[in-house]
Amino acid sequence: MGKQICGRCGHKMVSRDFGSLQRVWAFWVVGLMCYVPANLYPMLKTKTLFQNDESTIVGGAVELAHHGAYGIAFIILLASVAIPLAKFWAIAFLAVSVKSHRAAANHSRQVMYEIVEYIGRWSMIDIFVVAILSSLVQLKTLATINPGPASIFFALSVIFTMLSAQAFDSRMIWDEPAKDGDPS
């Protein structure tokens, strides 16, 4: 099917974008690749009077748990580890599900897609916290915080995951005749 131009907004139109899945997987792989160094390198470099501390995401959470701050450690693990991994899994699941025909109910997949699209941008909060901390905590010799190399990889990972989710054409979910009795 040839490409046409929308008479209203000038965007190109395709009935079904079959390149969509390829773009989903391409961005997905890059996002996952960026997520590895994001966890291996330090996120924050903290310098206080007596110690020099470079902690990774997981390392920082473990340290907080040792200090007894289980709540905050749990939130960090949830927001920076569990949710990104869940996003990778969800996008992969959706992309596979439109190809293999034994998929879950259409409506729940649509909801899943909307959740992934909604949550994607909120992962940038980690990057903003690093930015805020490193601009705020510059107290000369007493304490300084600087961003570590992981921050750039984490940001790239979030951005590519967002692009991957956006590349997914949610209409493909509904192309298969519904198995759950949805009218279609």
């Binding site: 930015a131 921050s151 750039i152």
Partner: peptide, 13 residues
């Protein structure tokens, strides 16, 4: 805050 990353390769960020 935005300029906190401004050293080296973190400029992009």
């Amino acid at each position: 805050a935005a300029l906190a990353f401004s050293s080296g390769p973190l400029l992009l960020l």
